[in-house]
Design a protein around this nucleic acid. Sequence first.
RNA 1: GGGGAAUUACCAGAGUGGCCAAAUGGGGCAGACUGUAAAUCUGCUGACUUACGUCUUCGGUGGUUCGAAUCCAUCAUUCCCCA
Length: 304
Amino acid sequence: MEEKKTNKCLIIIIGPTGVGKTDLSIRLANDFSTEIISSDSRQFYKELTIGTAIPTPEQLLKIPHHFIHIRSITDYYNACMYEFDVIDKLHSLFQSKDFVFMVGGSGMYIDAVCKGIDEIPDVDMKLRSMLIERINNEGLDNIRAELKILDPEFYATADIRNSQRILRAMEVCLQTGKPFSSFRLKTPKKRNFKIIKVGLNREREILYERINQRVDEMIKNGLVEEAKELHKHKGLYALKTVGYNELFDFFDGIISLERAIELIKQNTRNYARRQLIWFRRDKEIHWFHPNQEEEITKYINQNI
RNA sequence: GGGGAAUUACCAGAGUGGCCAAAUGGGGCAGACUGUAAAUCUGCUGACUUACGUCUUCGGUGGUUCGAAUCCAUCAUUCCCCA
C-alpha cells in the first residue's frame, strides 16, 4: 500500500467559515501558479451558490477550482467518495504541478484526504429509511438494545445518546451481517505527497462580526430567492444547511424573515465554533492570522 | 393630576416565607464526532475552590420574621388606563 514519496505537495488552507480563506487562497494559488481543490461539503452542490459563499466568477476564472458544484443536492455523496475523487484529481494535477492547494472548512472531508477513511460497504437506502421509520415510531431504545447485541464493541465506546451514530452503526451491521466496528480499522493511509496544513483564525468577536456581515450580504445578493427555488426539496439532507433551513421555516410561515436572518447568523457562528474545535485537535496545523500573508508564504516555502 | 401593572443571573422568563445560587428556553463557552458532518450529540454557564464547601445576589433603602426573591413601608424606573 505504501507508495513512493514524491516531491509533490498538498497545501491545505483550513479555517472556520468567514475567516477569510477564499481571498487569501486565491492570491496564494496565483503566486504558486497552481489550482485549488475545495474541501467544503456544501460547495459540492451545484444548486447552492450564494449561501455557501463559493468564490466569485472572477475568482473562479482567475484560478481553476475543483470540487465546486460537482453534484446535485439529490445525489448521495460522502467523505469516502470525496477521498477517492480528490486523490484521483491530485494524481492528475500533480502531473503538471508540484503544489496544489486545498481550501475549505469541512474537517471530516479534509481528514479523509489526509489520512484516508475506512472503506465500509454502501448501505441500501431502503434499509436506512426503514430504520429511521422505526426510530420515529418506537424511539431509540429498541434499536439501541439490538445494536448492543450486534456490536457490543462499538456500543461500549459509542455516544449512545446520538441517534445518528446509532443509526449508522445499525445500518452497517444489518447490511453486512458483521459488526460495524469490524470495519473501523482507523489505520491512516500513506500518501505519496507531502501535506502542509495552514490554519487561519482571528479573534472570536471579529470572526462573528464578519459572519454577521456576510450573512447580510448574502441576503442582499439574493439568498432568499435562491432558497425559494429549493424550498420544494427541503427534505433533502444536502439542504440541512445553514442559510437554507432557516429560510424554509420562513417560507413555511413558522418564523419571520428577520428571525430567519438572525438564526442564520447565529447558526453560522455556532458552526464556526464547532469547526475550530475540530481543527484544534489536529496538531499538524500551523495557525496564522489571515493578514499574515508574508509569514504564511514563508512557512509554506520552508516546508515544501 | 388619578388608577393599575411591572422591575429576577448575559437576554427572555418561572418562582409569591424555609426544599432557591434561583425552573425553563435562548445566547455564550467547552467538548465529542469514520460516512449526505454547514449534520448530530454532550457538559458548563454568580464569585472563590480540584472537590466537600464558603461567600455575595432577585431595582434602591429601611422594616417584619428564627428565616424573605417572596410580606410591609418608602424611594426610583418602565409600561398601561382615565384626565
